[in-house]
Every structure is written in C-alpha cells, then in structure tokens.
Computed example of a mutant assay.
Amino acid sequence: MQPKNLKRLIYHVIVGGFAILLLYPVFWLVMSSFKLSERIFVTADQLIPDPFVFSNYAQGWEGFGDYGFGTFITNTAIFVVLVLIGHLISCSLIAFGFARLNFAGRNFWFAIMIMTLMLPYEVVMIPQYIIFAQLEWLNSLKPLVVPAYFGHPFFIFLLVQFIRTIPRELDEAAIIDGSNIFGIYYRIILPLIVPALATTAIFTFYWTWDNLLGPVLYLNSPSKYTVSMALNMFLSNETVSNWGAMFAMSVVSLVPVFIIFFIFQRYVVEGISTSGLKG
C-alpha cells in the first residue's frame, strides 16, 4: 500500500472511530426507547432490546390529560418560527448598521453588544421576569418571542463579520443607481449573506427547540407547554418515572433536528467559515 493511501486509511479509521463514539449515546437512546421502562437501566449495557416493544411511543404520544404530544410539538413549532423570524430580521438589520453605517459611538456600542455575550442568562433572568410580570405577559409566548425582535449578540457578530467581506464598491454602485440605504440592505446585502442567514436560522432553531428554562419560567398552562417541558413531565419525584415514554418522545423530538441539520449542513459550514475571513 502506498504511503498516501495508508495515511488516508488511517485518517478515515480515526474519524470513523470518533464518529461512532459521538453517535453512541444517540444510538443508545433510540434502542432504549424500545425497551420496557423498568428494564432500561437494568440492561443499560445491552443495546438490543429484549423484548422489543413499541408501546412506549404510543404512551408518549398520548401526552398528559387532554393534551397529546402533538400539541406540544405544535406549540414548539410556533415558538421556533416566531423567534426565527425575529432573529433573521433584527440581527440582519443591526449587523448591516454596524458594518456599513457610520454613526457616533459605533465602535463603543458594538463593544457593549459584544460584552453582553459574556453575561450568563441567570444574571438577567430575574430583572426580565419582573419586567414581563409588570407587563402582564406571563403565561404567554410574548416574553420568549418579543426579545428576539431586538437582536441576538452572537448572530449580530456573525453577520457583521460576513457583511464586512462584501466589497463596499457594490454599495457605491447601488447609490449611483439611485438606491437608498434600505435599498442597499434589501437588494445588495441580503442576497449575499444567505449562507450566514442560514447559519443564524439553523442555530436559532436548535437553541429554541431545546430551550427549557425560558418556557419553564413563563408558561404555566399545559396547553402552552413546549416539547422540552413535556419531556420533563415524564419524570416524577413522587411516582414511578416513565422513562420508556420519555426516551421514545425524545427520539421523536430529535427527528426535526436531524432533518434540518442534514438539509442545511452545507450552509452551516459555509456561513461560519466565511464569517471569519475578515475582521
């Protein structure tokens, strides 16, 4: 075997080994969802279920009380779409302002925005809760959705870096043709930052779909619960936890995540790599 082919073989073996190592928990979750609840942890070292049962999926899909698991998926989908629209609109506009417009204190406000990335959510959690309680927004999606329309520092920074790679000559040509600032944003910038917008959309989807702390803080009615809250309800400190149903619905909740990733993974790589070309 030639040295070049040997190196390629070693590379693929190492990468394949890491892939198996990383995917093993997911595979264990899927296999455990077909086990009897009382045998999941007793036979944790046994991947193949014995016996092989499907009742966990039926029990999990029934949900709780009058609300099936489909209701929680619908609530989460609405939540994700509203936050996604807010992030795409607000973050792209703010990033365009920082990257293309000259205004007093631009660097200062950009630095302040970046500094907010270092603030843990626990620092602002209580002040935000007090504000939303005074606005009487509790037990609704407003506290979870409205902040998304004021930008997210991580995505703003990502989009700013991407926009800075776009030549300013395109803006000048648009101005010569009679375009205004919003025309440059809509006709020039937006079409060219699609990979970065796709990256923003994908990460927003992941973080919002898995969000548990926010819905737990602001949602009280079971009819408004999200998938993450519904999964948490399968666990109980007073009675026996239904691990089988929880694992089964965890697998169901992972399906949209995997679909989105495999469809748009090219945009994730392109958006992140291109955003770092120019500071």
Rank of each mutant, 00 (worst) to 15 (best):
Q2S: 15
P3E: 12
K4I: 06
K4D: 03
H12L: 12
I14G: 03
V15R: 06
V15D: 02
G16P: 07
Y24D: 03
V26E: 02
W28Y: 14
M31E: 02
S32K: 01
S32Y: 03
E38W: 06
T43P: 01
D45G: 11
P49Y: 06
Q59H: 10
Q59F: 09
G65Q: 13
G68D: 12
T76E: 00
A77P: 09
A77F: 15
F79N: 13
L82Q: 06
V83M: 04
H87D: 09
H87G: 09
G97D: 04
G97N: 08
F98I: 01
R100Y: 06
A104L: 14
G105D: 06
R106K: 15
W109I: 00
E122G: 14
V123T: 15
V123D: 13
V123N: 15
V124K: 15
I126Q: 02
Q128G: 07
Y129F: 15
Y129R: 06
I131Q: 05
S140F: 00
S140H: 00
P143W: 01
P143R: 04
A148H: 04
F150K: 06
F150R: 09
H152F: 01
F157K: 05
V160F: 00
I163T: 05
R164F: 03
I166R: 05
E169D: 12
I176F: 13
I176M: 15
G178S: 09
S179I: 09
I181K: 07
I181M: 09
G183I: 00
I189L: 12
P191E: 11
P195H: 12
A198S: 15
A198V: 15
F203W: 11
T204H: 10
W207H: 07
L212W: 11
L213D: 05
N220E: 07
K224F: 05
Y225R: 08
F234A: 04
L235V: 15
W243R: 06
S250W: 02
S250N: 09
F261P: 11
F261I: 07
F262G: 08
F262D: 13
V269K: 05
E270P: 05
E270K: 14
G271C: 02
I272Q: 02
I272E: 02
T274I: 08
G276C: 01
L277A: 01
K278R: 08
